[in-house]
Structure formats: structure tokens, C-alpha cells
Design a protein around this nucleic acid. Structure first.
Length: 641
RNA sequence: CGGGGCGUAGCUCAGCCUGGCUAGAGCGCUUGGUUCGGGACCAAGAGGUCGCAGGUUCGAAUCCUGUCGCCCCGACCA
């Protein structure tokens, strides 16, 4: 009896052991299978493998499309982002990213990360919450002013929500790096920034909270910094190209960041808040710093010009009003702008048809603290009210634009209410301490490089690279020991990308009147399966099969998995087609009445027409989508359904 | 911050000037039905502290005061 029980137990044990073995074997094969798929994938350089997301049914996600445009949207990208259900506003300048919008944003994040890593930068994460003391150390607490979001914590300490992170990275470096052997190094993060913008606008293009990729390079010397800068510059080009953007690189002002050189990456678009000057020869610059033409010299008729003569110009304080009152052209006027720098007043002169560029003034004066004077200061230093200032008889320093120095005579303010002077002559009636390039460039100015006509266009700033030098490492004492054993401040560069802006900039240029046309690389999904009338068993069955087959398929060239969205809603065909065009998924497979003949249609969002493919075998549909994903496909002559 | 404008249903808006029944329309939403390849139709329904607070008045979405929010135009930036 005992023996029997014993044997029985043994048998049991054996059985279980075998079963376990079998299971293990199965697991092993499964892993092998998965691994083989993965290794197939790894043939491709990491640059093209973005990330695969699971397929999705429309009814199981949140895509709240809008038929009507919300009233507060002004620019194309903003309208489209709202209408296609990408974002929703929470408050002024803050937005919720809904599933579709977040997926696109994430695609950009992955591309940026991939290229930064490829360029040898190291990803870190710094806190958005920062002690105000750090900012006071560099003096930027004052420089940023009210743009910084700040608050007091329980202990009474002041904190800021970082608008950027130069101070914090430099603090890391000052604490952790002390030898030239540890350099060069570039640190970056993709993180949220806070700026209490004076005026948030254009949706996600200018918001109070946004995602920025910010990188910072540290080198022992300027030559090293130049190299680090170059690497980032190249990476930027790759990033924007991969995101499907058309962009220009222009020379820019380094503004609050400080430093020696900087370039902006601009996407030309009427929605852009920046103005850029560009020339066929490749020259490009932000209008703030674009070099104005060297004007000629005043002609020699000076002798024959009568002395300045006061003219009554009641109420005329704008250039136009003065022109009307004096019967002149704007180009006959000299505008006198009273400014202050470090509390001291001075006058800046530009021709009546030109605009003063404050950034140019800042660069020429080598003082960051330049502002237009208020009415009281103007009254005090000129003796006249705002709108009637002129250079004649002024005792404060005068700086003139080159074009002013080239005028033989001019109409100027009389420094008295309702009075202007005519026949004011340069170097006879008024003089300038310096003649500089101070005016904003205008459309048609000759190119400073080649002399041809330049054009002024709007641009969206998606990236900005700066050669900072030692501004921050000096201020924060981020010193390193050189080979010779000498302590020197690290030479820095900093590099920003507006991640949200990339998405918006992309929509500005990749859309038509029906909706978005996502570039493949950042499309929230690659393929949309549109089922017309799912109540028909044939449609339902074919859709399901296609959805599954496509979800398992890969782009043969990149190895990327197809990301598939299935419009399985029970709504009318019209609604589905309109929404499909609106959300702009690059490829659409329409499962509808053609299934009766055993066919479906494959269509590209960007092109008219479609290809008809048999549903059986499904591999045919997959093939058609794979072909379409890779560029032009042969379309049948039939118009879009 | 200065100038202009707007807050009424999820969205687009009417009603306000000249105070007066239970505050409206279109779209969207729910249910049922007919439809079903480019935002269809019929029927029934849900949904509103009229931004908020105070005042005037017998009575306020409407008039007055304050306040908050939002948008647009100008000086900042990814």
C-alpha cells in the first residue's frame, strides 16, 4: 500500500516536471521568435527607429474633432490643433495635449533625443523648481523680471519656475567637474519651461508653459566651444529635416542669453512672430540685427540750404501727421527717439521711414539696459512733449543711423509743443557723437554679402544656438583646472529647441483647406483604416483583418512598425471622410462598398486618387500600404471617393 | 503694462440699445426609427448659477459699480 502511494507520488512528480520542461521550452522559442524580430529591426540605424505604439480604435481613444473653429484661434496651426482634437486650452497660454497631439509631440521628442544622443550629448533632467538665489548670482533675476514665474514656499524662501536652465547646469558643472580631463561635455534635457509671457498667443506657438530641449556644452577653450557648437548646429539640421520642416538658419541676436554668436533656426511662415531678412546667396539674419546698407554721403548743396525754420504743426506727433502738415515724405524726416541707458538719457536718430532696432543699439552701446524714455523724461531733456523731439539744440549724446548722416537736409522735431523745423542740416545744425547702423532692415535692402536685393519674411523660431563664452561660468565660478594647472572658467554654448513649436510650425506648412497633412515622421498614426458602414458583415470582417494585418506589418525600408488607427465608429461616411482629412493621417485604407467586389482602397492624404487592392490575401493590402508609405504609388484615374 | 473687444448650453452665436411669461437657434450629445462613399432625415429627450459680486428696480441676461477670465494690436523669446 505504502509502496503504491510512493510510486503514485513519483509519477505525479514526473508528470509535473515534464510539463514544466515543456512550458520552459515553449517560452524559450517564443523569446527566440521575438528576438529574431528584434534583430531584424536592429539592422537599421537607431536614427530611423522611432518608437512603436499599439494600434488603436477610434471608439477607444479620445479624438474630439470640431466642425466649427473655436473663436479664439487665429493662426492655421492653432485652428487645426483645436479642430483635429490635438489640444485643448486650460487657461491662457497653457494647453492640454490630447492623445493625438501628445503622440505627435512624442514623435518629435524621440527624434530630438535620438539626434542629441547621436551628437554625443548626455541626457539629464533638471528641476523646473529652482531657488531664486542662483538667478541672483548671475544677475538674470533682474534681467528676466516679471517673465519669471515665482512663488514663496512654506519656509518663506523664494522659488522660480525655470524659464531656462543655464544657472542650474552651470551649478552642476561647478560642483562636479573640475578638470580639463572631464571636458568637453554636453548635457541636455527635454523638459517643461515656464515663462509668464507678456502676451501668450497663437496657441502653442507662444505659451506660458512649453517643452524645450535645452543643451549646454562645456569646453576648456573657445576652439573647443566652436567644435561643440558645430556639432549641435549639425544635429539641429538633422532634427528639423527629419521632422519634415522647411527651415532657414539666420544670424540672430543673443539677447538675454548673452554671448558672442548665435543662430536661429526659422521655419518660414506668415504665422511667425519673427522677421527674417534673406538673400538668394544664402545670407540670412533676424531683422533685429540684419546689417543695413552703407548709405552715401550728404551732397554738397549744403551751402545753398537756408537756416532751420520753425513750422507750426499742431497735434502732429506721428511721422504721417508731420508729413501731411509739412508736405513732405517720410524719407525727408529724421525721427528723434529719446532713450535711456543705465538711467542716462540719449537720443537715437533714424530716418522717418525707418524703424529703430533696439538690439542694434544695445550692441553698439555695449549696454544691455536700453529702453525708450517715458514722456516725463522726454519733456525734461528736450523741453518739448513726446512727438516733437528733434536733434537741434540737444545737449544729451546723439547717436545717428548711417542713413541720417547721408541726408542733406531734414524735417525734425522742434523740441517744443506743436513745432517742427525744416532745413535742418547734418553737421551744420546738429551733430552725432557716433554714426552707427541702427535701423531695422527693410524689404529690398541690398544684401550685405552680395549686394542683391534681400527679402523680409516671417519665420517661426524653432531652434536657437548660442556661443555663450564664460558669462555663466564666470558669474557662478564654474572653474576648471587646465593641463598647466591653472583655474579657468569653462567656455559654454547653449542650444534650445521648442518642441511644441515644431509641431505647430509643421502644421502651418503641412495642411490644406480640409485639414492636416502630417509628415510621416511625426504623424500620430501612419495608417487610418476607415470603415464605411460597419453594420455590413463583409465590411466589418475585412476591416478587422486589415487592421490586424497592418498593425503587425512593418515599413520594409526602415523596419518601423506601422501605427494604425481604425475608425470603427458607427457614423456616416461623410463624417468619417471629413474627420480623416482633418486629422491628416498620411495613409488611409477605405473599407466600403468596394468590398462587395472583394476590394478596398488605399489613399494618400496628400494626393488625389487612390489604388484599388483586393482584400484577399490581406498581404496585398499590406503591400499596397508599404508601397504607398515609400512615396508615390500608381494611382488609378478615378477621382477620390 | 498701455490701447481695443468679448464673457449667454460642449462648439458657433442671437437676445442686451428700449428691463417684464418657463432664456433661444444651428451644430454636437442621448434614445428609437429610416438612411449609409463626403458632415442625411424624422420623432422624442438631456443639457444654462446668462463669468462672479454688489447695487438700482415690484421685476435684471438686459441698466449702474466693482471684480475675474479670455481674445486682438504694441515692447520679450523656444
Amino acid at each position: 500500500m505504502l509502496l503504491f502511494l510512493w510510486l503514485w507520488l513519483w509519477l505525479w512528480l514526473w508528470l509535473w516536471l515534464w510539463l514544466l520542461l515543456l512550458l520552459l521550452l515553449l517560452l524559450f522559442f517564443l523569446l527566440l521568435l521575438l528576438n529574431s524580430r528584434h534583430s531584424r529591426n536592429s539592422r537599421f540605424p537607431p536614427s530611423v527607429v522611432v518608437f512603436a505604439v499599439p494600434p488603436m480604435r477610434w471608439t477607444q481613444t479620445l479624438i474630439p474633432t470640431l466642425k466649427e473653429t473655436p473663436a479664439d484661434a487665429e493662426v492655421v496651426s492653432h485652428k487645426l490643433m483645436l479642430r483635429a482634437g490635438l489640444i485643448r486650452k486650460l487657461a491662457s497660454g497653457t494647453y492640454n495635449y490630447l492623445p493625438l497631439g501628445f503622440r505627435a509631440l512624442n514623435k518629435v521628442v524621440h527624434i530630438v533625443r535620438d539626434e542629441m544622443d547621436r551628437a554625443g550629448a548626455n541626457e539629464i533632467l533638471m528641476p523646473a523648481l529652482q531657488p531664486v538665489e542662483l538667478w541672483k548670482e548671475t544677475g538674470r533675476y533682474e534681467a528676466f523680471g516679471p517673465i519669471m514665474c515665482q512663488f514663496q514656499d512654506r519656509t518663506g524662501r523664494m522659488n522660480v519656475l525655470g524659464p531656462t536652465h543655464e544657472e542650474v547646469v552651470t551649478d552642476i558643472v561647478r560642483n562636479e567637474i573640475n578638470s580639463y580631463r572631464q571636458l568637453p561635455i554636453t548635457l541636455y534635457q527635454i523638459q517643461v519651461k515656464f515663462r509668464d509671457e507678456i502676451r501668450p498667443r497663437f496657441g502653442v506657438l507662444r505659451s506660458r508653459e512649453f517643452i524645450m530641449k535645452d543643451a549646454y556644452s562645456f569646453d576648456v577653450d573657445t576652439a573647443g566651444m566652436d567644435k561643440s557648437y558645430e556639432k549641435m548646429y549639425e544635429a539641429y539640421g538633422r532634427i528639423f529635416t527629419r521632422c519634415g520642416l522647411v527651415f532657414r538658419v539666420v544670424q540672430a541676436d543673443s539677447g538675454l542669453m548673452g554671448g558672442s554668436a548665435s543662430c536661429e533656426f526659422m521655419v518660414p511662415s506668415p504665422a511667425g512672430e519673427d522677421l527674417i531678412v534673406s538673400c538668394e546667396c544664402g545670407y540670412g539674419a533676424n531683422i533685429e540685427i540684419a546689417e543695413g546698407p552703407v548709405a552715401g554721403v550728404a551732397d554738397s548743396r549744403v551751402g545753398s540750404i537756408p537756416p532751420p525754420e520753425p513750422v507750426s504743426t499742431p497735434g502732429s506727433h506721428t511721422v504721417e501727421q508731420v508729413c501731411r502738415a509739412m508736405d513732405g515724405r517720410p524719407a525727408d524726416l529724421v525721427k528723434t527717439l529719446i532713450c535711456t541707458s543705465g538711467g542716462k538719457p540719449f537720443a537715437a536718430l533714424v530716418r522717418g521711414d525707418h524703424e529703430l532696432s533696439i538690439p542694434k543699439l544695445i550692441r553698439s552701446l555695449k549696454s544691455a539696459d536700453v529702453a525708450l524714455a517715458d514722456a516725463a523724461t522726454i519733456q525734461r531733456v528736450t523741453g518739448g512733449p513726446l512727438g516733437f523731439s528733434g536733434p537741434v539744440g540737444l545737449t544729451i549724446p546723439i547717436y545717428a543711423d548711417r542713413a541720417v548722416a547721408a541726408m542733406s537736409e531734414a524735417i525734425v522735431g522742434g523740441n517744443r509743443a506743436d513745432t517742427h523745423l525744416r532745413h535742418a542740416v547734418w553737421n551744420r545744425d546738429y551733430k552725432a557723437a557716433e554714426v552707427w547702423d541702427l535701423r531695422m532692415a527693410v524689404d529690398g535692402d541690398p544684401c550685405p554679402k552680395c549686394g542683391r536685393r534681400t527679402a523680409v519674411t516671417h519665420g517661426i523660431e524653432v531652434g536657437h544656438v548660442f556661443k555663450l563664452g564664460t558669462k555663466y561660468s564666470d558669474a557662478l565660478k564654474a572653474h576648471i583646472l587646465t593641463e598647466a594647472g591653472k583655474g579657468i572658467p569653462a567656455v559654454m554654448g547653449c542650444y534650445g529647441i521648442g518642441v511644441n513649436r515644431i509641431v505647430a510650425a509643421c502644421l502651418e506648412n503641412a495642411s490644406d483647406d480640409r485639414g492636416i497633412q502630417w509628415p510621416w515622421a511625426i504623424a500620430p498614426y501612419h495608417v487610418l483604416v476607415t470603415s464605411v458602414d460597419l453594420k455590413k458583415p463583409k465590411v466589418a470582417e475585412a476591416s478587422q483583418r486589415i487592421y490586424e494585418a497592418l498593425s503587425a506589418a512593418r515599413d520594409p525600408e526602415t523596419g518601423e512598425a506601422f501605427e494604425v488607427l481604425w475608425d470603427d465608429r458607427d457614423s456616416q461616411a461623410g463624417v468619417k471622410f471629413k474627420d480623416a482629412d482633418l486629422i491628416g493621417i498620411p495613409l488611409r485604407v477605405t473599407v466600403g462598398k468596394a468590398v462587395e467586389q472583394g476590394n478596398v482602397e488605399v489613399k494618400s492624404r496628400k494626393k488625389e486618387g487612390f489604388t484599388t487592392v483586393p482584400v484577399d490575401p490581406v498581404s496585398k493590402v499590406v503591400e499596397a500600404v508599404q508601397t504607398a508609405a515609400r512615396g508615390p504609388i500608381i494611382f488609378s484615374a478615378a477621382p477620390a471617393p
